[in-house]
Design a protein around this nucleic acid. Structure first.
Lengths: 200, 200, 200, 200
DNA sequence: CATGAATGAGCGTTCATTCAT
DNA sequence: GATGAATGAACGCTCATTCAT
């Protein structure tokens, strides 16, 4: 058991934590070096530039740190699920439930993903993960026939929106669980095999 | 009677068009007055301030302009559809097809909606529209039982993501139509009545 | 009897009146052409530039207009007084009482005098008037021996301050009269002949 | 222990000095950050914003700095005077003489006081000081009966005007002393007990 | 006479980044 | 390693003034 995610130690970690907090509470747009420095208790922004190559570097570090945290929460739950459908459900539900545990990190990550100028590894990685999951699931007969790219896009964005809304005003755990279940149900129905899906 | 406001509204329209183009190509964050002025062939940013009360005013005008354009394209198609399911499909498909006609406007609107500090009428209006459509559709037996709020959130965000991705690199009309159909299929399946949807 | 001070007619007068009102209520610093145009019900500042050679011209016209008004109130009262002392008293008291009749004009004039870059005719004229009054009064034995320049400076400034304070929050006429009397008493005592005035 | 704030406070002091000089020579209205920066030999206005929270902060620092300088000159002279009348004389005379030592500071302070949007501590403090001095002096029989508020207003404003005029074109020390004595005489006569002061 | 669009300089402020110490 | 003063460009916005119509 490790006390801290591996990312960084000392100052870097302190700055990253401050940056996440600032993005979570003030938004990406307002997350200037001076605001982050103030939140971190630093007397100047020079410290941040000293430890990070630039704003992108800091933001990337934030994404990495948050992914550590979210991964630590979600991955075991996903791994515990058996089958493509169950894993999709586990991904969605654990992501929504994560809001109850780490609302700041969730808020910040979504804001970062939204405002990322270039599609970061995080964003495209998750997209590729969904696509691949759908593809293998279709091959295994767990999912019906649908465009994996479009579906991956729509599902990740829809998940983010639900999660962001929940994170903006964190509900009770039970309500959070219900929302996760609802969304997972929706996605499972949408991807179930055998449905006609043709024009109504 | 003279169309005395022609010149004035002409400049306003020109600035709005320039602003939309800049937001579409450089993003909301980079859409500064000077960039917009340069794009519009104006010699100074003062001209923009002359025609608009402030940045918010300009942005609001952009949203209004875009909504008019998108509404003119989508509304007839939606109105032509009969039944809740067909209308949902028409909304989704016409929105995706719209990318082929007005990629800049679509790109800009999504960026504007994303970065709107306060939920604008546009964004919350669409959400409410979806919710209400689902609610009445459920009452009419056209849709199954699901959380209308969560579904509206996920669907509008998913639709935006698909549309934004298409707008970033506009495909052939046929491909666009296919993507729209795929997404509509997905949504129709997800909301169809009679599906169990329980844990798999 | 004339219905209007001679200054100007039509647009010019309208603009001058608006400028006075704006200076009175918002202060010299905020009295921009656009603010004045808005107050005058004009749609653009071009109208002001069309009628006045520049900001200085407009401001000078304001001063002239206000002096017309204040002169119409004060001059008869001063003329009615007999003797140097009584005239000094009449000047002071009528100036303070003027606040009850034309608070806006008084406020504006004082603000204009304060912020006049170069000493205007108005300001230096009044100073010269006081100096001359003291000089002839001393020759007539109505006033004691004192530096007329210093006294004129101190008295006009002191009068302005009292008047400005009263104009900022106009008191009852009776209170206004009392303040005028108090100030006049003060000035009369200070300039009375026969007082030693040496170091105490 | 290190004098760590030396550099920082050095720059602040340098900027304050530059600001005072600019206000003194160009007036409050023209005292923009860029003008002050240029006068201070700084390459940009950003440096001023770096050291001061805003324009108000800088202006407040200027007032504080000037009050320290003027207090250091005037206070000993006032304290050395015995009795209410002598102290009034000492205040007036030392204030006028101060012009010979610190003309820029005097000019700047008067301009700052004039243009202070809200009555600063400086201006209302001095007014209260005069009022209180008159009140206690009247109780002690040193002054006659007069409205302390009106007198305080007129005297401080008159003193400012005399000082400002002297500062605009600094005379010889002897002339300065004479002007101070004249003004003090005037004020002493005006407030002396026993004078009738009624209508002449 | 009158209009209002256009201009261009200037405002205070914030920003990410650099660099001598 | 760490500091914080310094930089200079950019921001949205206001200003007095000009000028073609």
């Amino acid at each position: 058991m490790r006390a801290r995610t591996f990312t960084e130690s000392g100052r870097r970690a302190q700055i990253v934590r401050a940056a996440i907090a600032v993005i979570a509470e003030a938004g990406y747009l307002k997350a200037s070096f001076s605001r982050i420095a103030k939140h971190a208790g630093l007397s100047s922004t020079g410290m941040i530039s000293y430890h990070f190559a630039g704003k992108d570097d800091l933001l990337t570090a934030c994404v990495t740190e948050i992914e550590e945290i979210t991964g630590a929460f979600m991955q075991p739950r996903i791994d515990a699920a058996v089958g493509h459908v169950a894993q999709l459900r586990a991904y969605v539900e654990s992501n929504v439930e994560l809001v109850g545990e780490h609302p700041d990190e969730v808020r910040a990550l979504i804001d970062l993903v939204k405002n990322a100028g270039s599609p970061s590894d995080a964003v495209s990685g998750r997209l590729a993960l969904f696509e691949e999951h759908f593809r293998t699931g279709q091959a295994a007969g767990a999912f019906g026939a649908f465009d994996v790219r479009t579906t991956a896009l729509a599902f990740t964005a829809g998940l983010d929106a639900v999660v962001a809304t929940a994170a903006a005003n964190v509900p009770e755990p039970a309500e959070l669980a219900r929302i996760g279940r609802e969304l997972a149900d929706l996605y499972v129905r949408a991807t179930a095999p055998g449905s006609a899906g043709g024009p109504a």
